[in-house]
Design a protein around this nucleic acid. Sequence first.
DNA 1: ATGATACTTTACGTTAACGTAAACGTCAAT
DNA 2: ATTGACGTTTACGTTAACGTAAAGTATCAT
Lengths: 142, 142
Amino acid sequence: MPGSNVAEPTAELTYTISELAAEFGVTARAIRFYEDKKMLEPERNGMSRVYGRRDRGRLRLILRGKRLGFSLSDIGEMLDLYDPNDAKQEQLKIILGKSLARLRALEQQRRDIDELILELRDNCGQISDLIAGNYAPQIRDP
Amino acid sequence: MPGSNVAEPTAELTYTISELAAEFGVTARAIRFYEDKKMLEPERNGMSRVYGRRDRGRLRLILRGKRLGFSLSDIGEMLDLYDPNDAKQEQLKIILGKSLARLRALEQQRRDIDELILELRDNCGQISDLIAGNYAPQIRDP
DNA sequence: ATGATACTTTACGTTAACGTAAACGTCAAT
DNA sequence: ATTGACGTTTACGTTAACGTAAAGTATCAT
């Protein structure tokens, strides 16, 4: 029975490298590369890598960061921000500072996106009008 | 008097390459590189490049795209989407299609950002608590 | 006319983020 | 025991997006 053994906490669901690769649509090479960059640190079953919940979560964050255009070293920092495991008071303040800086960057990025979306939507409207047969208005103010 | 000369439209304010470079905080090299990639096409005064309002606007879009993590070729496409100058009916539909695809991508990216911001904010809160002296709750559900 | 300054082209160098090939280990099934 | 299927390491290749150095041109001030 699961849970009957008190000495066994939660039986940790694990993943192989190709499972993760398939799930997230990346190559195993990439995942190993992230490990090389100290962004993941899977267990080993003999020779093979064994990924747990934590590594899976980290991989998700890595890929999300990539979609947002961050560099791996940037993402590496952000990952560290996520688990202030054993940090001393002084460390914590530094981490908090970096986190806040990241927040600023992300909020700026949000504004960029919103602007782009608005402009693109507007543009789509104009194109639709053109297709619909309207003679183009050609309004262009700075 | 400005506007008294009918033959002269608006006297076009122009910029040199280093003006633009300074204004946007990039190098002249980068700007020339974008031209190489057909993303800008400044006039020439003899040998020197002369940028007008349009190129300046395009440069803004390029850099905004970069901040959002798009590749230059992606951005190149997006730029084309912005001026369906002399497109035929069939072209317009293609452009509209690509524009809508871009919109989807951007909206996805917006969701990514919002998630990240939320998580980071939450994290900042926890760190602040730690600094404030609270004994860490250690709540972690998948 | 001579620097100083700002612009140009050409071309090779660099970094990040993997791709790809080679060469090998391991285990299950045939 | 050999053939896949999957895993591993090592190492070299590739692409994007410029950096940087070299060498020349144009303009302006002294």
